[in-house]
Each structure stands twice: as C-alpha cells, then as structure tokens.
Computed example of a mutant assay.
Amino acid sequence: MNMKLLAFAALAAATATPALAASFYVVQDSATKKCTVVDTKPTVTTSVIVSPDGKVYTTKDEAEAAIKTISVCETK
C-alpha cells in the first residue's frame, strides 16, 4: 500500500508543478506607452505584449531586466 501512495504522491507532484510555474509578461499601455511587468496575460486591447516574440518570463526580475532591452520601452 505504501508503494501505491508513494506513486500517487509522485504523480500528483509532477502534474501540479507546471501549474505552479509563474509567468510574467512585459506589456505596454497603448494610451500612455508605459511598459510594465504583469503576472497575468493581458486580455484587454489597451495592453499589448511587447517582449520579443511574445516571450513569457519565468521570474519578475527577468522580465524587469528585459524592459531595459525592449526598444519600445525605452524612455526618451
């Protein structure tokens, strides 16, 4: 019985882990042209994903670093 429980626990952990992975997006507000990092994919037309090829970042720090390299996010 312990082997069945262990197998079930391993399966549950393996399937739950991808769901817990964080996703961060670099988006630009089309009205203000300001770029920000958000943790949910934008669903409104006023926010546009501006990262190269729609890249999804796994950490907020990675997304914030990317803002500095995205040309439309540069401050003039």
Rank of each mutant, 00 (worst) to 15 (best):
S51R: 07
S71M: 05
T43F: 03
T43L: 06
S30F: 03
T32P: 11
K4D: 06
F24H: 13
A22E: 09
K68G: 00
A66G: 02
A31V: 11
Y25E: 02
A16T: 10
A21T: 06
P18N: 11
A10R: 07
A66S: 11
Q28A: 08
S51H: 03
V44C: 06
M3K: 12
M1K: 12
T58I: 06
V48P: 02
A31H: 09
A66T: 04
E74F: 00
A19Y: 12
M1Y: 07
E64T: 12
A14Y: 10
T45R: 11
T40H: 10
V37F: 12
P52A: 14
T69E: 06
A31F: 08
V72N: 03
T40A: 10
T46E: 08
I67Q: 06
K55D: 01
S51T: 06
T69M: 02
A22T: 11
A13T: 12
E62C: 00
A13I: 10
Y25G: 00
D53N: 15
K41L: 03
E64D: 14
Q28P: 08
A10I: 14
A9I: 13
S51W: 07
K60W: 01
A65T: 15
K55C: 02
N2G: 14
A10W: 04
V50Y: 04
S47K: 07
F24N: 04
T69G: 00
L6W: 07
Y57F: 15
V26F: 05
A31M: 12
K55V: 09
